[in-house]
Design a protein around this nucleic acid. Structure first.
Length: 559
DNA sequence: TACATACAC
DNA sequence: AATGGTGTATGTA
């Protein structure tokens, strides 16, 4: 393990040099044409307006990001179409406003950086170095993880069940939003999270299929049943993903198959990895034989690396991250930071534009600056990433759902156990909510309260089914301008206590009334601060016919 | 505690 | 014409 510490490299240059690097750091160092073009405040400071094209705005869209099967797409063309179809829309304007806010954050970070002195970094160095030592000492590489990710899951299920789709570019979803596409569609730049009407522009012959979640759940369960044989405690991150610890399976296989030669630690690990590779291949073969769906997998000594590797040889492939600490580290350091779970487009932009950090190697080289400029939680997480210390510290061997991703110290350690292990087990859940986008126009006061009641009723039914009640009610609204607000309140008696949602609606109505009048495109209700329902049994009140909003409910509307 | 953001799938 | 739904975590005030 100590080799890893050395493999990690020497602390790089001093703070001043780092600062210089940032300032002169290539094209990410300067304000982009897009930022100038969209920033009212700085507009007239520019004598020349840079020419604008779709690519200048690509960063506004999540789906502009690299995705499996899209290597050879003509990005310029895609960006241009997306831009043409989007510009001027309310959605686009909101995206620009958000972007402007992150630019402001970047400027703040740069300003802080500019006033950072060598003397500021000295104590940081000490702290970080100590932390590195501690992390490496505690690092647990004793397990072998595997992340299985179904290929184009929803699209694959639909194609399996409808042979007429073969050979055609197709998307699951509708004209407003696409949830998945097959690889043929990806060649046109059409992918998940892209609105369907833009996708159709990119690929006029694109076939749309409505989503059938029941089918996907069923298929997902079939896959899971197979995977469980390899890790009974597997952790289903979502319908199309599973986090597994295959150590035990591999060790049993080795014990039964191979004579127990006396091997040193490294040779043993090498053998385990070798077996793991075959085991995972067999497992994937079994999945495709039984479900006619293919999947890809990643194998590594950390969950995070297994997750990243699962994407590498898509579709229908697998990737092993070398087990040798130095090689593992090299793999890690070469990663673009955007590949790191938890670093999305905003964090990527901040790190790149403010600190000149583009890869995990940069993250390591500038770890002192990160520790100085970023929040403690984020700096800690990033440091762990650079050292491959993202495994849960005290085994208990439970994955924490989405938290291979968010995995700050808190998330990496213990979280809920049984997740996806049955309907009834809701332990560990923090909130439950429901939201709905209405296709424009629903804006009369009456309609909005009707909608609110309806959402409350449906949500309450789910809560009652799952035996969930809580003390915090949150109203979420998205205006026609795509701006989002939330309003919340703590209630003394946990809700909902009846399946028709009337008590939940009492509170939601109050929150909504305060925001009236307004034009909305989305409304959502969430119940959080959940409590153990056994302390306050939920009385199931038969809901009967949902009644319309009565005039008395509108009491407070006109203020 | 309230709210806004970011992120994942 | 037209840009989702569900849940978690974090930062800030």
């Amino acid at each position: 393990m100590s080799t890893a510490a050395h493999g990690a490299g020497e602390p790089c240059g001093d703070g001043l040099r780092e600062r210089e690097t940032v300032r002169t750091g290539g094209r990410h160092g300067g304000e982009s044409a897009a930022s100038r073009a969209t920033s009212a405040s700085t507009k007239d400071e520019d004598a020349v307006e840079a020419p604008r094209n779709g690519s200048d705005f690509a960063h506004l869209f999540v789906f502009a990001n690299e995705k499996a099967g899209m290597k050879k797409v003509d990005k310029e063309h895609v960006n241009q179409i997306v831009f043409e179809m989007s510009k001027g829309s309310e959605h686009f304007k909101e995206a620009q406003r958000r972007d402007e806010r992150t630019q402001a954050e970047v400027r703040k970070l740069r300003a802080k950086l500019a006033t950072t002195l060598e003397s500021d970094l000295a104590p940081v160095r000490h702290r970080v170095d100590a932390k590195v030592t501690k992390l490496l000492r505690e690092r647990d590489l004793s397990r072998i993880y595997c992340v299985v990710d179904m290929d184009c899951f929803f699209a694959a299920v639909e194609m399996r069940d409808d042979p007429s789709l073969a050979g055609k570019p197709m998307a699951v979803g509708g004209l407003s939003m696409i949830s998945t596409t097959n690889y043929l569609a990806r060649e046109y730049g059409v992918r998940s999270a892209m609105p369907g009407f833009i996708a159709r522009k990119l690929c006029p012959e694109l076939v749309f299929v409505k989503s059938n979640f029941d089918k996907y759940r069923q298929a997902s369960q079939e896959v899971r049943d197979i995977l469980k044989k390899y890790d009974p405690k597997l952790h289903a991150g979502s319908l199309d993903e599973a986090y597994m610890d295959i150590t035990d399976f591999v060790d049993v296989k080795i014990a039964t198959e191979q004579a127990g030669a006396n091997l040193d630690a490294d040779a043993q690990t090498a053998r385990r990895f070798h077996v793991a590779e075959r085991v995972v291949q067999a497992m994937r073969d079994e999945v495709s034989a039984h479900t006619r769906l293919t999947c890809s997998a990643g194998i590594a000594r950390t969950r995070m690396l297994a997750k990243i590797a699962s994407d590498r040889n898509k579709p229908n492939g697998q990737c092993v991250v070398p087990w040798q600490p130095e090689k593992m580290l090299r793999f890690t350091r070469e990663l673009a930071i955007r590949k790191v779970p938890g670093i999305g487009k905003v964090a990527e932009k901040k790190l790149k534009d403010a600190l000149g950090v583009a890869t995990v190697r940069d993250l390591w080289d500038k770890r002192y600056l990160c520790a100085h400029l970023l929040s403690a939680v984020q700096a800690d997480y990033l440091l762990r990433v650079t050292l491959c210390c993202t495994n849960p510290s005290v085994s208990s061997s439970q994955a924490s759902s989405s938290s291979a991703a968010s995995s700050s110290a808190a998330a990496v350690s213990a979280l809920p156990s049984a997740f996806g292990q049955g309907e009834d087990n809701q332990r560990g859940r923090k909130s439950i909510g429901m939201e709905r986008t209405f296709s424009q126009g629903a804006s009369s006061v009456q309609e909005l309260f009707d909608t609110c009641l309806d959402i409350c009723a449906r949500l309450s039914r789910r809560c009652v089914e799952k035996q969930l009640i809580g003390h915090c009610v949150t109203l979420k609204i998205k205006k026609s301008s795509f701006e989002v607000f939330t309003r919340q309140t703590i209630v003394t008696n946990a809700v909902p206590r009846c399946a028709d949602g009337t008590d939940l609606f009492e509170h939601a109505r109050e929150l909504l009334a305060r925001e009236m009048p307004c034009r909305l495109r989305l409304m959502g209700i969430k119940v959080s601060k959940l409590i153990d329902p056994s302390h306050a049994p939920v009385k199931i009140v038969s809901s009967g016919v949902l009644h319309a909003v009565k005039p008395w409910m509108m009491r407070r509307t006109l203020k």
